[in-house]
Amino acid sequence: MELQVNGHASYCYTGGKPFDPAKPTVVFIHGVLNDHSVWILQSRYFAHHGWNVLAVDLPGHCRSAGEPPRSVEEAARFIVALLDAAGVPRAALVGHSFGSLIALEVAGSAPERVSQLVMVGTAFPMKVSPALLDASLNQPMKAIDMVNTFSHSMLAPPPSSLGPGTWLLGGSRALMKRVLASNPRHNVFHLGFKACDDYQGGEVQAARSQCAILFIAGRNDQMTPPRAMQALAAKARHGRIVTLEAGHALMTEAPDAVLFALKDFLQP
């Protein structure tokens, strides 16, 4: 599904179902160097169980046109504009990593637009090491290898979201290279990491949000360790934490567990 947002075509995967304004809507927001496909299991489930699904490619990523967001706040304004373009007054937001900060910023800055919020693999502050930040700019292929090493706690869990025995590290590496190559004009890798590193509004927006918030953490996450979300969770009015046996790539390492946590939390 394509929507015109801020004058540009924006792609949203709908889980194979047509968009129905009468249904509740859940928006899935990916992280740095990812796209809508990281939510394949979760988005298809909700699309076939009474929800509209908008699993978005952020601007300047893969099938979405426009300038890639240079800050969490800019990306959050895009999500609000996306809801406007879809004619959705209020939606549940599910974000992973960078996407979790975007979803949180929407929930704090436009609380009337967010019914429920899920933050997967999150942290605040979400600081990026200087070495990794520099590599994402000057040696992106090296940085992709670094990120994948830190993001995965297993190589081929049976089953994974891509099928039993899939080489998850290799699949994630291929996805990141494809997303990076999708925008030769802008280094979306570095821009995304810098946006995470620069973001300062997390605790303020968690306190401003009015909705229930679910935090999904990977017990073996080296990118956003579970302890790094504690202060943020303490600021949430209605916060709940679920910890899964996974690294940072939760949707591929623990796809069913992530789905069950979402299913238990999200209510139409």
Results as ranks from 00 to 15, higher is better:
R178V: 08
R178H: 08
R178A: 14
R178C: 09
L180Y: 14
L180V: 13
L180A: 08
L180R: 04
A181F: 06
A181K: 01
S182V: 07
S182L: 08
S182R: 04
N183A: 07
N183D: 07
N183G: 02
N183L: 01
N183V: 09
P184M: 11
P184L: 05
P184K: 14
R185Q: 06
R185S: 11
R185A: 09
H186E: 10
H186S: 12
F189V: 11
F189Y: 15
F189N: 07
H190N: 10
H190R: 12
H190D: 05
H190P: 10
L191G: 07
L191S: 06
G192D: 06
F193I: 04
F193M: 13
K194E: 08
K194F: 04
K194A: 12
K194Y: 03
K194I: 06
C196W: 15
C196I: 15
C196E: 15
D197E: 00
D197R: 01
D198I: 12
D198S: 13
D198R: 14
D198K: 07
Y199I: 07
Y199R: 00
Y199D: 14
Q200L: 15
Q200S: 13
G202E: 04
E203S: 03
V204Y: 04
V204K: 02
Q205H: 15
Q205Y: 11
Q205K: 11
Q205I: 08
Q205C: 13
Q205W: 05
Q205F: 11
Q205L: 14
A206W: 00
A207I: 01
A207L: 15
R208D: 01
R208C: 10
S209M: 14
Q210P: 01
Q210N: 10
C211I: 03
A212H: 06
A212D: 03
A212S: 09
A212K: 15
A212N: 04
L214H: 01
L214Q: 01
L214R: 10
L214F: 01
L214N: 03
F215K: 11
F215L: 13
I216S: 01
I216L: 12
I216W: 00
I216V: 15
A217G: 09
A217H: 10
A217E: 15
A217D: 15
G218V: 00
N220L: 05
N220D: 07
N220F: 09
